[in-house]
Computed example of a mutant assay.
Amino acid sequence: MRELLTAEFSPLQLDIVDESHKHAGHAGARDGRGHFRVRILAAAFAGLSPVKRHQRVYAALGAMMQTDIHALALETRTPDET
């Protein structure tokens, strides 16, 4: 996940927290996919709505969204929004 997001956005900050342990027994966790919280600070988000930013993150993660990630909480900001 870190490599894909770094390659796509060249972030100034990237924090990824695996919160899967908080969802033990949850239907989405049973198949091995995780729950993650991502904070990404990147100039690439400038001029984009929050929905477009999230769509870009989902696209960058590609197949991981189907194979490794069940839930993804996103905080996407530009350097001007810190």
Rank of each mutant, 00 (worst) to 15 (best):
D68P: 08
H23P: 14
V38R: 03
A73V: 14
D15C: 06
D68T: 14
L72G: 08
A43E: 14
L48D: 00
A43Y: 00
T6N: 05
I69T: 14
M65D: 04
G25K: 01
H35E: 10
L14E: 10
V51G: 03
I40A: 05
H35Q: 09
H26P: 03
R53D: 10
L12S: 12
I40E: 06
A73T: 15
V38E: 02
K52I: 03
M1T: 02
F36C: 12
A42D: 02
L12W: 05
R53K: 15
A71F: 13
I40P: 02
I40R: 06
S49C: 10
G47P: 00
D68K: 11
A46G: 05
R77F: 10
A59Y: 01
L61K: 01
I40G: 03
Q66W: 01
E8R: 11
L14W: 09
K22T: 07
V17M: 08
F9A: 04
H26Q: 14
I16L: 09
S49L: 06
F36A: 15
L48S: 07
G28S: 09
P79K: 05
A7D: 04
I16C: 06
V38Q: 02
G28V: 03
R53L: 12
R37A: 12
L41G: 02
V17P: 06
H54S: 13
I69A: 06
L4D: 02
S20K: 04
G62M: 01
F36H: 10
G47D: 00
V57R: 13
Q55N: 08
Q66N: 08
H70I: 14
E81H: 09
R37H: 06
R33Q: 15
A46P: 01
L61W: 06
L4E: 06
D68H: 15
G32W: 14
R33C: 09
L41P: 04
H23A: 15
A27I: 13
A46I: 01
L74P: 02
R56M: 15
D80E: 10
R37E: 02
Q55L: 13
L4P: 03
T78Q: 00
H26C: 07
P79W: 11
I40L: 15
H26D: 08
R53H: 11
A60R: 08
G34C: 10
H35L: 03
A29R: 13
H35T: 14
L72I: 11
V57Y: 06
L4G: 06
G34N: 07
S20Q: 10
R53Y: 09
T67L: 10
H54W: 11
E19V: 05
L74Q: 05
L14C: 11
V38W: 03
K22V: 07
I40V: 13
D15A: 06
V57I: 15
H26R: 10
R2P: 09
L72M: 14
M1E: 04
R30S: 04
G34H: 09
T82Q: 13
E8T: 08
A43P: 07
D68N: 13
